[in-house]
Simulated assay, not measured.
Amino acid sequence: MYTHLEDYIYELYTSIGIEIPVNLDKQIIAKKLGVEIIYEEDKLFRFDNEISLIRSDVRQEWMDFGHEIGHYLRHCGCQLNMHRLFIDLQEWQANNFAYHFCVPTFMLDKLYNYTIYDIMQLFNVDYDFAYKRLEMYTNKFYSGGSMKWTYQLN
């Protein structure tokens, strides 16, 4: 059983023809959603249909895109005039959105016997992001607390 956010992301991706990890490309997704990606020196933000990213490695840009597209799709208004607590809520929501957007549950469900390194490669995310996402995923199935992932670095 999926959460509302997982259902939303599944519907979003399938509506634009994204069904496997290899199709998770920020440029293609942005174009299909009518979003323009621009690059700034030092700020991430969303304004109207523009998402600003900081030039970085491909993984960081993908994770940042997931966060900013979360703002684009789920939030409205300008944070400059918001109460700090509401800004914090929106940032938490965008972070949570990014985990599910960058590593969708419906794609994870199709995998078998995978590691954090497999998730890093398949979904183009960094170690900490993959670790956290797998922890979120497994916690859905095990209500007895956090799963501890241990892997040796190669």
Rank of each mutant, 00 (worst) to 15 (best):
His100Phe: 14
Glu6Pro: 03
Lys132Val: 06
Leu24Met: 04
Ala30Val: 02
Asp118Lys: 06
Tyr127Pro: 00
His4Glu: 15
Leu24Ser: 04
Met63Thr: 09
Tyr99Val: 03
Tyr112Pro: 01
Thr115Leu: 05
Met1Ser: 15
Gln27Arg: 12
Met107Leu: 01
Ile54Pro: 05
Thr150Gln: 14
Leu122Cys: 07
Pro21Asn: 04
Thr115Ser: 15
Tyr2Gly: 01
Asp48Met: 04
Asp42Thr: 03
Met82Asn: 03
Trp92Asp: 15
Tyr127Glu: 13
Tyr2Lys: 09
Phe129His: 09
Thr115Met: 08
Cys78Arg: 13
Leu53Glu: 11
Gln121Ala: 06
Ile9Gly: 04
Arg133Val: 10
Gly144His: 09
Tyr2His: 05
Phe97Asp: 01
Tyr2Asp: 04
Val58Tyr: 14
Leu89Cys: 08
Cys76Asp: 13
Asn23Gln: 12
Phe141Asn: 01
Leu53Arg: 11
Asp126Cys: 03
Asp48Leu: 06
Gly66Ala: 06
Tyr13Leu: 05
Pro21His: 11
His67Lys: 07
Asn81Glu: 15
Lys32Ile: 06
Met147Arg: 12
Glu68Gly: 00
Gly17Asp: 13
Phe45Ile: 03
His75Ser: 01
Asn95Leu: 12
Arg46Val: 13
Ile9Arg: 00
Asp126Thr: 04
Thr105Val: 09
Gly77Glu: 05
Tyr112Val: 10
Glu50Asn: 14
Arg46Phe: 12
Asp128Phe: 14
Pro21Leu: 10
Thr115Glu: 02
Phe47Glu: 14
Ile87Gly: 08
Gly144Cys: 06
Arg55Cys: 00
Tyr72Met: 02
His75Gly: 00
Ile116Pro: 00
Asn49Asp: 12
